[in-house]
Design a protein around this nucleic acid. Structure first.
Lengths: 151, 151
DNA sequence: CCATATCGTGAATATACATCACAATGCATG
DNA sequence: CATGCATTGTGATGTATATTCACGATATGG
Protein backbone atom coordinates (compact mmCIF):
# COMPACT_ATOMS: atom_id res chain seq x y z
CA UNK A 1 0.00 0.00 0.00
CA UNK A 2 1.36 3.35 -1.05
CA UNK A 3 1.81 6.22 1.38
CA UNK A 4 -0.66 8.25 -0.59
CA UNK A 5 -3.39 5.65 -0.03
CA UNK A 6 -2.61 5.48 3.67
CA UNK A 7 -3.08 9.21 3.99
CA UNK A 8 -6.43 9.00 2.26
CA UNK A 9 -7.56 6.30 4.66
CA UNK A 10 -6.60 8.10 7.84
CA UNK A 11 -8.05 11.31 6.48
CA UNK A 12 -11.37 9.57 5.93
CA UNK A 13 -11.32 8.34 9.52
CA UNK A 14 -10.35 11.76 10.83
CA UNK A 15 -13.11 13.47 8.88
CA UNK A 16 -15.67 11.07 10.22
CA UNK A 17 -14.58 11.65 13.79
CA UNK A 18 -14.50 15.38 13.19
CA UNK A 19 -18.04 15.39 11.87
CA UNK A 20 -19.21 13.27 14.79
CA UNK A 21 -17.65 15.79 17.15
CA UNK A 22 -19.44 18.61 15.37
CA UNK A 23 -22.76 16.84 15.66
CA UNK A 24 -22.01 16.34 19.34
CA UNK A 25 -21.52 20.08 19.61
CA UNK A 26 -24.98 20.57 18.20
CA UNK A 27 -26.39 18.41 20.97
CA UNK A 28 -24.73 20.70 23.49
CA UNK A 29 -27.01 23.48 22.32
CA UNK A 30 -30.08 21.41 23.17
CA UNK A 31 -28.61 20.60 26.56
CA UNK A 32 -27.90 24.22 27.35
CA UNK A 33 -31.41 25.26 26.42
CA UNK A 34 -33.13 22.45 28.29
CA UNK A 35 -30.87 22.53 31.34
CA UNK A 36 -30.12 18.84 30.87
CA UNK A 37 -26.69 17.22 30.97
CA UNK A 38 -25.29 14.86 28.34
CA UNK A 39 -25.81 11.72 30.40
CA UNK A 40 -29.32 12.63 31.45
CA UNK A 41 -30.19 13.52 27.86
CA UNK A 42 -28.84 10.18 26.76
CA UNK A 43 -30.97 8.39 29.35
CA UNK A 44 -34.03 10.34 28.23
CA UNK A 45 -33.29 9.44 24.62
CA UNK A 46 -33.09 5.74 25.48
CA UNK A 47 -36.25 6.03 27.54
CA UNK A 48 -37.99 7.60 24.57
CA UNK A 49 -36.94 4.73 22.34
CA UNK A 50 -37.71 1.92 24.78
CA UNK A 51 -40.66 3.34 26.68
CA UNK A 52 -41.02 3.04 30.49
CA UNK A 53 -38.19 0.88 31.80
CA UNK A 54 -36.56 -0.47 34.92
CA UNK A 55 -33.29 1.07 35.98
CA UNK A 56 -31.51 -2.17 35.20
CA UNK A 57 -32.60 -2.16 31.60
CA UNK A 58 -31.60 1.49 31.32
CA UNK A 59 -28.20 0.62 32.75
CA UNK A 60 -27.56 -2.06 30.17
CA UNK A 61 -28.94 0.07 27.33
CA UNK A 62 -26.62 2.92 28.34
CA UNK A 63 -23.72 0.63 29.05
CA UNK A 64 -23.15 1.99 32.55
CA UNK A 65 -23.48 0.61 36.07
CA UNK A 66 -26.89 0.33 37.70
CA UNK A 67 -25.62 2.53 40.50
CA UNK A 68 -24.94 5.30 38.05
CA UNK A 69 -28.48 5.12 36.69
CA UNK A 70 -29.78 5.70 40.21
CA UNK A 71 -28.00 9.05 40.24
CA UNK A 72 -29.10 10.04 36.75
CA UNK A 73 -32.73 9.22 37.52
CA UNK A 74 -32.42 11.20 40.78
CA UNK A 75 -31.51 14.22 38.70
CA UNK A 76 -34.27 13.71 36.16
CA UNK A 77 -36.85 13.27 38.93
CA UNK A 78 -35.63 16.50 40.52
CA UNK A 79 -35.96 18.36 37.21
CA UNK A 80 -39.40 16.87 36.62
CA UNK A 81 -38.58 14.89 33.49
CA UNK A 82 -39.35 11.40 34.80
CA UNK A 83 -41.13 9.72 37.68
CA UNK A 84 -40.15 6.69 39.71
CA UNK A 85 -43.15 4.45 40.27
CA UNK A 86 -43.43 0.94 41.65
CA UNK A 87 -43.03 -1.65 38.95
CA UNK A 88 -46.42 -3.20 38.13
CA UNK A 89 -45.33 -6.79 38.72
CA UNK A 90 -41.83 -6.85 40.25
CA UNK A 91 -41.68 -5.21 43.66
CA UNK A 92 -37.90 -5.05 43.59
CA UNK A 93 -37.81 -2.86 40.50
CA UNK A 94 -38.77 0.76 39.94
CA UNK A 95 -40.64 1.84 36.87
CA UNK A 96 -39.07 4.92 35.27
CA UNK A 97 -41.60 6.85 33.19
CA UNK A 98 -41.26 10.18 31.38
CA UNK A 99 -43.54 12.97 32.62
CA UNK A 100 -45.29 15.35 30.22
CA UNK A 101 -42.22 17.51 30.45
CA UNK A 102 -40.01 14.52 29.77
CA UNK A 103 -42.10 13.55 26.73
CA UNK A 104 -41.81 17.09 25.44
CA UNK A 105 -38.03 17.01 25.78
CA UNK A 106 -37.86 13.65 24.00
CA UNK A 107 -40.00 14.92 21.15
CA UNK A 108 -37.87 18.05 20.89
CA UNK A 109 -34.76 15.89 20.83
CA UNK A 110 -36.12 13.74 18.02
CA UNK A 111 -37.23 16.77 16.04
CA UNK A 112 -33.87 18.46 16.34
CA UNK A 113 -32.17 15.20 15.36
CA UNK A 114 -34.29 14.89 12.22
CA UNK A 115 -33.85 18.55 11.46
CA UNK A 116 -30.09 18.19 11.61
CA UNK A 117 -30.17 15.12 9.37
CA UNK A 118 -32.19 17.05 6.81
CA UNK A 119 -29.87 20.03 6.93
CA UNK A 120 -26.72 17.94 6.67
CA UNK A 121 -27.75 15.42 4.04
CA UNK A 122 -30.97 16.77 2.52
CA UNK A 123 -29.27 18.48 -0.40
CA UNK A 124 -27.18 15.48 -1.47
CA UNK A 125 -28.05 13.70 -4.73
CA UNK A 126 -29.89 10.44 -3.98
CA UNK A 127 -27.10 8.46 -5.59
CA UNK A 128 -24.43 9.98 -3.38
CA UNK A 129 -26.45 9.45 -0.22
CA UNK A 130 -26.88 5.82 -1.18
CA UNK A 131 -23.15 5.28 -1.58
CA UNK A 132 -22.47 7.13 1.66
CA UNK A 133 -24.95 5.08 3.67
CA UNK A 134 -23.77 1.85 2.08
CA UNK A 135 -20.17 2.67 2.94
CA UNK A 136 -21.16 3.29 6.54
CA UNK A 137 -23.00 -0.02 6.64
CA UNK A 138 -20.03 -1.87 5.24
CA UNK A 139 -17.65 -0.18 7.62
CA UNK A 140 -19.82 -0.95 10.63
CA UNK A 141 -19.97 -4.57 9.50
CA UNK A 142 -16.20 -4.61 9.04
CA UNK A 143 -15.75 -3.26 12.53
CA UNK A 144 -18.06 -5.86 14.03
CA UNK A 145 -16.14 -8.63 12.28
CA UNK A 146 -12.92 -7.14 13.62
CA UNK A 147 -14.20 -7.16 17.19
CA UNK A 148 -15.34 -10.76 16.91
CA UNK A 149 -11.93 -11.85 15.73
CA UNK A 150 -10.34 -10.22 18.73
CA UNK A 151 -12.66 -11.86 21.25
CA UNK B 1 -39.93 15.67 1.15
CA UNK B 2 -41.38 12.20 1.44
CA UNK B 3 -41.32 10.21 4.65
CA UNK B 4 -39.16 7.64 2.97
CA UNK B 5 -36.46 10.20 2.23
CA UNK B 6 -36.58 11.50 5.79
CA UNK B 7 -35.93 8.02 7.13
CA UNK B 8 -32.94 7.61 4.85
CA UNK B 9 -31.50 10.90 6.07
CA UNK B 10 -31.84 10.17 9.77
CA UNK B 11 -30.53 6.66 9.22
CA UNK B 12 -27.42 8.06 7.59
CA UNK B 13 -26.87 10.34 10.59
CA UNK B 14 -27.52 7.49 13.02
CA UNK B 15 -25.08 5.21 11.24
CA UNK B 16 -22.40 7.85 11.32
CA UNK B 17 -22.85 8.40 15.04
CA UNK B 18 -22.92 4.67 15.63
CA UNK B 19 -19.66 4.17 13.79
CA UNK B 20 -18.07 7.05 15.67
CA UNK B 21 -19.14 5.40 18.92
CA UNK B 22 -17.60 2.12 17.81
CA UNK B 23 -14.32 3.83 16.97
CA UNK B 24 -14.46 5.44 20.40
CA UNK B 25 -14.81 1.98 21.88
CA UNK B 26 -11.62 0.97 20.12
CA UNK B 27 -9.82 3.85 21.81
CA UNK B 28 -10.99 2.50 25.15
CA UNK B 29 -8.92 -0.62 24.54
CA UNK B 30 -5.79 1.50 24.18
CA UNK B 31 -6.64 3.38 27.34
CA UNK B 32 -7.16 0.20 29.33
CA UNK B 33 -3.84 -1.22 28.18
CA UNK B 34 -1.86 1.95 28.76
CA UNK B 35 -3.56 2.90 32.03
CA UNK B 36 -4.42 6.31 30.60
CA UNK B 37 -7.80 8.02 30.78
CA UNK B 38 -9.67 9.52 27.83
CA UNK B 39 -8.82 13.11 28.69
CA UNK B 40 -5.17 12.43 29.36
CA UNK B 41 -4.95 10.44 26.13
CA UNK B 42 -6.52 13.34 24.29
CA UNK B 43 -3.98 15.73 25.79
CA UNK B 44 -1.14 13.42 24.82
CA UNK B 45 -2.52 13.21 21.29
CA UNK B 46 -2.63 16.99 21.00
CA UNK B 47 0.85 17.22 22.47
CA UNK B 48 2.08 14.77 19.87
CA UNK B 49 0.60 16.85 17.08
CA UNK B 50 1.75 20.24 18.38
CA UNK B 51 5.00 19.35 20.10
CA UNK B 52 6.02 20.78 23.50
CA UNK B 53 3.44 23.36 24.57
CA UNK B 54 2.36 25.66 27.34
CA UNK B 55 -0.67 24.63 29.37
CA UNK B 56 -2.61 27.54 27.95
CA UNK B 57 -2.17 26.40 24.40
CA UNK B 58 -3.14 22.88 25.42
CA UNK B 59 -6.24 24.27 27.10
CA UNK B 60 -7.38 26.07 23.97
CA UNK B 61 -6.49 23.13 21.73
CA UNK B 62 -8.53 20.81 23.93
CA UNK B 63 -11.32 23.34 24.40
CA UNK B 64 -11.22 23.12 28.20
CA UNK B 65 -10.28 25.48 31.01
CA UNK B 66 -6.66 26.13 31.87
CA UNK B 67 -7.38 24.93 35.38
CA UNK B 68 -8.45 21.56 34.05
CA UNK B 69 -5.21 21.18 32.11
CA UNK B 70 -3.30 21.65 35.36
CA UNK B 71 -4.99 18.54 36.70
CA UNK B 72 -4.52 16.49 33.55
CA UNK B 73 -0.82 17.37 33.41
CA UNK B 74 -0.52 16.50 37.10
CA UNK B 75 -1.73 13.02 36.25
CA UNK B 76 0.53 12.63 33.24
CA UNK B 77 3.54 13.78 35.25
CA UNK B 78 2.68 11.24 37.94
CA UNK B 79 2.44 8.44 35.36
CA UNK B 80 5.71 9.53 33.75
CA UNK B 81 4.32 10.52 30.36
CA UNK B 82 5.25 14.21 30.39
CA UNK B 83 7.49 16.61 32.25
CA UNK B 84 6.83 20.14 33.40
CA UNK B 85 9.83 22.37 32.72
CA UNK B 86 10.30 26.11 32.90
CA UNK B 87 9.39 27.77 29.63
CA UNK B 88 12.58 28.86 27.82
CA UNK B 89 11.53 32.49 27.43
CA UNK B 90 8.35 33.16 29.42
CA UNK B 91 8.82 32.69 33.15
CA UNK B 92 5.07 32.63 33.76
CA UNK B 93 4.51 29.60 31.59
CA UNK B 94 5.44 25.93 32.02
CA UNK B 95 6.74 23.88 29.16
CA UNK B 96 4.97 20.53 28.88
CA UNK B 97 7.12 17.95 27.09
CA UNK B 98 6.54 14.24 26.48
CA UNK B 99 9.04 11.87 28.11
CA UNK B 100 10.36 8.79 26.30
CA UNK B 101 7.40 6.93 27.69
CA UNK B 102 5.07 9.66 26.52
CA UNK B 103 6.57 9.59 23.04
CA UNK B 104 6.13 5.83 22.94
CA UNK B 105 2.46 6.17 23.89
CA UNK B 106 1.93 8.83 21.23
CA UNK B 107 3.54 6.68 18.58
CA UNK B 108 1.46 3.70 19.65
CA UNK B 109 -1.64 5.86 19.47
CA UNK B 110 -0.83 7.01 15.95
CA UNK B 111 -0.03 3.49 14.82
CA UNK B 112 -3.26 2.11 16.19
CA UNK B 113 -5.16 4.98 14.57
CA UNK B 114 -3.63 4.24 11.16
CA UNK B 115 -4.11 0.54 11.64
CA UNK B 116 -7.79 1.07 12.33
CA UNK B 117 -8.17 3.30 9.27
CA UNK B 118 -6.61 0.61 7.11
CA UNK B 119 -8.79 -2.12 8.53
CA UNK B 120 -11.97 -0.09 8.21
CA UNK B 121 -11.48 1.47 4.80
CA UNK B 122 -8.57 -0.37 3.22
CA UNK B 123 -10.69 -2.84 1.30
CA UNK B 124 -13.01 -0.25 -0.26
CA UNK B 125 -12.76 0.42 -4.00
CA UNK B 126 -10.91 3.69 -4.62
CA UNK B 127 -13.99 5.17 -6.24
CA UNK B 128 -16.17 4.46 -3.23
CA UNK B 129 -13.65 5.88 -0.79
CA UNK B 130 -13.48 9.02 -2.89
CA UNK B 131 -17.24 9.52 -2.78
CA UNK B 132 -17.29 8.77 0.94
CA UNK B 133 -14.56 11.28 1.76
CA UNK B 134 -16.08 13.90 -0.52
CA UNK B 135 -19.47 13.48 1.17
CA UNK B 136 -17.83 13.95 4.57
CA UNK B 137 -16.11 17.09 3.32
CA UNK B 138 -19.33 18.51 1.95
CA UNK B 139 -21.21 17.69 5.12
CA UNK B 140 -18.58 19.28 7.31
CA UNK B 141 -18.74 22.38 5.12
CA UNK B 142 -22.54 22.37 5.34
CA UNK B 143 -22.33 22.15 9.09
CA UNK B 144 -19.89 25.05 9.31
CA UNK B 145 -22.16 27.19 7.15
CA UNK B 146 -25.06 26.26 9.43
CA UNK B 147 -23.18 27.35 12.52
CA UNK B 148 -22.22 30.65 10.96
CA UNK B 149 -25.83 31.40 10.10
CA UNK B 150 -26.83 30.81 13.68
CA UNK B 151 -24.19 33.08 15.13
C1' DC C 1 -39.08 -23.63 52.38
C1' DC C 2 -34.53 -22.60 50.97
C1' DA C 3 -30.74 -21.41 48.08
C1' DT C 4 -29.59 -18.32 44.77
C1' DA C 5 -30.14 -14.54 41.66
C1' DT C 6 -31.74 -9.86 40.75
C1' DC C 7 -33.05 -4.82 41.84
C1' DG C 8 -32.01 -0.60 43.78
C1' DT C 9 -29.20 2.15 46.78
C1' DG C 10 -25.74 3.80 50.70
C1' DA C 11 -20.79 4.56 51.16
C1' DA C 12 -16.45 5.49 49.47
C1' DT C 13 -13.52 6.88 45.75
C1' DA C 14 -11.64 8.72 41.22
C1' DT C 15 -11.91 11.57 37.22
C1' DA C 16 -13.30 15.46 34.59
C1' DC C 17 -14.91 19.55 34.25
C1' DA C 18 -16.29 24.59 35.88
C1' DT C 19 -15.67 29.35 38.18
C1' DC C 20 -13.34 32.55 41.07
C1' DA C 21 -9.45 34.59 43.37
C1' DC C 22 -4.70 35.42 43.44
C1' DA C 23 0.34 35.70 42.96
C1' DA C 24 3.95 35.97 39.64
C1' DT C 25 5.31 37.60 35.50
C1' DG C 26 5.23 39.97 30.84
C1' DC C 27 4.46 44.05 28.23
C1' DA C 28 2.97 48.48 26.43
C1' DT C 29 2.35 53.25 27.06
C1' DG C 30 2.94 57.54 29.02
C1' DC D 1 11.48 53.89 34.14
C1' DA D 2 7.09 53.35 36.30
C1' DT D 3 2.46 52.26 36.23
C1' DG D 4 -1.33 49.66 34.63
C1' DC D 5 -3.27 45.96 32.19
C1' DA D 6 -2.99 41.20 30.35
C1' DT D 7 -1.57 36.52 30.78
C1' DT D 8 0.00 32.05 33.13
C1' DG D 9 -0.62 28.65 36.35
C1' DT D 10 -2.79 27.06 40.53
C1' DG D 11 -5.46 26.82 45.24
C1' DA D 12 -10.16 26.45 46.73
C1' DT D 13 -14.58 24.87 45.94
C1' DG D 14 -18.50 22.74 43.69
C1' DT D 15 -20.98 19.61 40.40
C1' DA D 16 -21.59 15.64 37.32
C1' DT D 17 -20.30 11.17 35.92
C1' DA D 18 -18.74 6.96 36.90
C1' DT D 19 -16.77 2.90 39.48
C1' DT D 20 -16.85 -1.06 43.14
C1' DC D 21 -18.51 -3.16 47.25
C1' DA D 22 -21.94 -4.30 50.64
C1' DC D 23 -26.58 -4.95 51.90
C1' DG D 24 -31.55 -5.34 52.36
C1' DA D 25 -35.67 -6.46 49.86
C1' DT D 26 -37.73 -9.29 46.73
C1' DA D 27 -38.22 -13.07 43.07
C1' DT D 28 -37.77 -17.69 41.59
C1' DG D 29 -36.55 -22.49 40.77
C1' DG D 30 -36.08 -26.80 42.96
Amino acid sequence: MYIHDMVRLTEALDKMLHLATLVGTDLTRFERESGLTTSRTHLLWVLGAAGPSTQQSLASALGVSARNVTGLVDGLVASGHVTREPHPTDRRATWVTPTARGEAAIRELKDSHEHLARELFGHLPAEQLTVFAATLDETIATFSRLMEERS
